[in-house]
């Protein structure tokens, strides 16, 4: 007989209270996780969307990409050795639109590669978010440090860096704006880390963490997410502890008539699973609705992978919380329960 279900049916309110708390905490976790992912995309989609590989910057840059200058002879050697390798540079800057209004962008230039947009001199390809600022294909944009003009050739989706839309420009234009001849970085897709004299290599994640704002932002948001997960685990432990304390007498009597301790644990786990699954289904659905209706400017991205991972973590933490509180069940002596009086 499924006594776990019978108890839920008879004490709907009690279980609904726990379920609604788990629902709210998990919803909050999903939304903050969506924001963390969204901000991460907003901060570094340009890098995150690259395939796994190795980034190289000059050793004396002290792990700061915009201080890096790669010697052109080393660059030529690496690019000729690795067919898919690409050298590129990123710098924050401004574009003036038709109305003379300054728009913050991340200028990116690279050697020929399918991983980056290659543009001709005098042309520019922008992240699609610039469309929302009124910029259209064919518009002419300028930069205070650049003698020429940029004609907007097109837009690309999800290309952001340091919360600014990416602006792909020609290498000559880049060199003129920033008065540099060397590239900052070399990326070798799929490559293992190899020692190159004067260069330091980074995996994708290691490179992302060299972006100061990215690391600090993600650390804070991930800390909130994990705190919420831990809080929900504690909620399970506290709630089941309170319920178990109220049911000590009942457990004792059930043990006295021969119910196995393992059956009592199964009863508690079934209830935990039932509540958590319903709460998660509701919070996942609602967070997906939020994903759809969230304002366009809000960086929010909740992927299926993240949702599944967090749901599994919630189930595990709920299981641990309930089990910890259930240790009392093991300690219950039937005799004590009988002597305690009516349950």
């Amino acid at each position: 007989m499924n006594i776990a279900w019978k108890e839920i049916k008879k004490n709907k309110v009690r279980f609904m209270i726990l379920g609604s708390i788990v629902f709210l905490v998990s919803l909050l976790t999903f939304i903050i996780s969506g924001l963390a992912n969204g901000l991460s995309q907003d901060n570094a989609a340009l890098i995150k969307d690259l395939p796994n590989g190795q980034f190289y910057m000059s050793k004396d840059a002290n792990e700061t990409y915009n201080m890096s200058r790669i010697d052109s002879s080393i660059q030529d050697k690496m690019l000729s050795k690795q067919k898919d390798a690409v050298a590129f540079s990123i710098q924050m800057g401004f574009l003036n639109d038709r109305a003379g209004k300054q728009q913050s962008v991340a200028f990116v230039t690279s050697t020929d590669s399918s991983l980056f947009k290659n543009v001709k001199k005098g042309e520019i390809v922008l992240d699609r978010s610039m469309e929302d600022k009124g910029i259209k294909i064919g518009d002419t944009l300028t930069n205070n440090q650049y003698s020429g003009k940029f004609i907007v050739k097109g837009f690309v989706d999800q290309r952001k860096f340091s919360h600014a839309p990416v602006a792909y420009i020609n290498m000559d234009a880049y060199k003129e704006i920033y008065r540099v001849n060397e590239m900052q970085l070399i990326f070798v897709p799929g490559g293992d880390s190899t020692q190159v004299a004067g260069l330091q290599s980074f995996s994708n994640n290691q490179f992302l963490n060299t972006i100061a704002s990215y690391k600090a932002e993600q650390m804070s948001l991930n800390m909130i997410v994990w705190f919420l997960v831990i809080i929900s685990g504690m909620l399970f432990a506290i709630f089941f502890y309170m319920m178990n304390v109220q049911k000590i007498g009942l457990y004792g009597i059930l043990k006295a008539i021969g119910v196995k301790t393992s059956a009592l644990f199964k009863m508690m786990w079934t209830q935990m699973l039932f509540i958590t699954v319903i709460a998660l289904v509701l919070s996942v659905s609602l967070s997906q609705v939020f994903n759809m209706i969230a304002p366009k400017g809000m960086p929010f991205s909740l992927t299926t992978d993240t949702t599944v991972q967090l749901s599994i973590v919630f189930l595990i933490i709920g299981f641990i919380g309930a089990t910890l509180s259930g240790i009392q069940i093991k300690k219950v002596e039937p005799l004590q329960a009988i002597q305690q009086g009516e349950i």
Binding site: K10, L250, I253, L254, A256, I257, G258, E342
Partner: peptide, 17 residues
């Protein structure tokens, strides 16, 4: 206890749900 014994206590101790 489960199969060969039966118990009646001072209080009925029924399962409330």
């Amino acid at each position: 206890r489960a199969s060969k014994f039966g118990f009646v206590f001072q209080f009925a101790h029924l399962v409330p749900f």
